[in-house]
Simulated scan of single mutants.
Amino acid sequence: MVIPVHDVNPVRRTPWVTYALIAANVLVFLATPGMAGSVAGGSDLSQLCHLQAFLDHYAAVPRELIHHQMPQLVPTGAVQNGPGGAGCAVAPPGYDKSAPLSVFTAMFLHGSWIHLLGNMLFLMIFGNNVEDRMGHIRFTLFYVVCGYAAGYGFALLNADSGDPLIGASGAIAGVLGAYLVLYTRARVWVLVPFLFFLPLRLPAWLVLGFWFVLQAFYSAGEGVSEAGTVAYAAHVVGFLAGMLLAWPLKAGTPPPPEPRGLLFGRRARPRHTW
């Protein structure tokens, strides 16, 4: 698996929507119960109960999306002691959950710092150019549509699952698909783990094509969505949706310039030879 770090593809305008999406995802993560301090150590039972209640309220659940089967009992966030030991208390929900709206809220939820930072890295590298080509408003709509396509696509393939689906990766997969269509010839600096991290500059079609093939390969297995697992099928659907939505713009998108004298996207100092 290669890790992208920078693309050689300058933009014409400031990607305000991309920056806003990154800021919103970070802020929501910090506000998610038990997540902000998850790097320092494990969560206690109280934090886990609060997190479970939070996710049941705001995450997308395939069974709710497809069958409209809302749970009769949900975690309250409190700890309850019983004959079998302590556990999370449950009660009838004190709120009305909209299943379609939960797909949108789930796009801003993440299960760990690694989950969050990995998604934001891909959004930062590839989102700015797609936003630059589409414009701020169209890019915002595009991002949301890809997120919904990924969420409902995953739900259709796992219609009976009651596990929460969270993360921005479905929408970001759509951004990757659009980038592949619009900037096929762009170059991307990546780190390849080979004994140590080896920096290479590869074409976008190779980096993103390899990523998509990997997601499709993994999605051939049984898709799961709870914390600690990856909804690969959502990535595949989001990627394909992004490609289809971006295709009408391909003809008007010139290939990115190939600046000379760049080192990791920064202009290198001139070298003198003897």
Rank of each mutant, 00 (worst) to 15 (best):
H6G: 07
D7W: 03
R12H: 06
Y19S: 12
I22A: 06
I22D: 08
A24L: 05
N25I: 13
V28N: 05
P33W: 05
G34N: 04
M35A: 08
A40P: 03
G41M: 01
G42A: 13
S43T: 14
D44S: 12
Q47F: 09
C49N: 04
C49G: 09
L51C: 02
L51R: 15
A53Y: 01
A53N: 00
F54I: 02
L55K: 05
Y58H: 12
A59H: 06
V61N: 07
V61T: 09
P62T: 10
E64L: 05
E64R: 09
E64V: 05
E64G: 08
L65F: 07
H68I: 12
P71A: 13
P71S: 13
C88L: 02
A89Q: 15
A89T: 06
G94W: 13
Y95R: 11
D96P: 07
D96Y: 14
D96G: 14
K97V: 14
K97L: 15
A99Q: 11
P100S: 00
F104L: 15
T105K: 11
A106N: 11
G111Y: 05
W113G: 08
L117K: 02
N119I: 11
G127L: 02
G127P: 09
N128M: 08
E131T: 06
D132H: 07
D132S: 06
R133A: 14
H136N: 01
F139T: 09
Y143H: 09
C146N: 15
G147R: 13
G147N: 11
A149V: 11
A150R: 15
A150F: 14
G151V: 08
Y152E: 10
Y152F: 15
F154A: 15
A155K: 15
N158K: 13
D160L: 09
D160H: 10
S161C: 00
S161F: 05
D163G: 03
D163W: 08
G174T: 11
V175Q: 05
G177M: 06
Y179S: 03
Y179K: 08
L180C: 00
V181L: 00
V181I: 04
L182D: 04
Y183V: 09
T184V: 10
R185G: 05
V188A: 00
V188K: 01
V192C: 02
P193Q: 08
L195S: 00
L195P: 01
F196K: 11
L202W: 15
W205N: 09
W205L: 01
V207H: 00
G209N: 08
G209Y: 05
F212G: 09
V213Y: 12
L214I: 00
A216R: 03
Y218K: 01
Y218N: 04
Y218M: 02
S219C: 02
S219V: 06
S219H: 03
G221R: 15
G228D: 04
G228Q: 05
G228E: 09
Y232I: 03
A233M: 13
A233W: 13
H235P: 07
H235Y: 10
L240Y: 11
A241H: 03
L244D: 02
L244P: 14
W247S: 07
L249P: 06
A251W: 12
F264Q: 12
R266W: 14
R271D: 10
H272I: 10
T273E: 10
W274V: 10
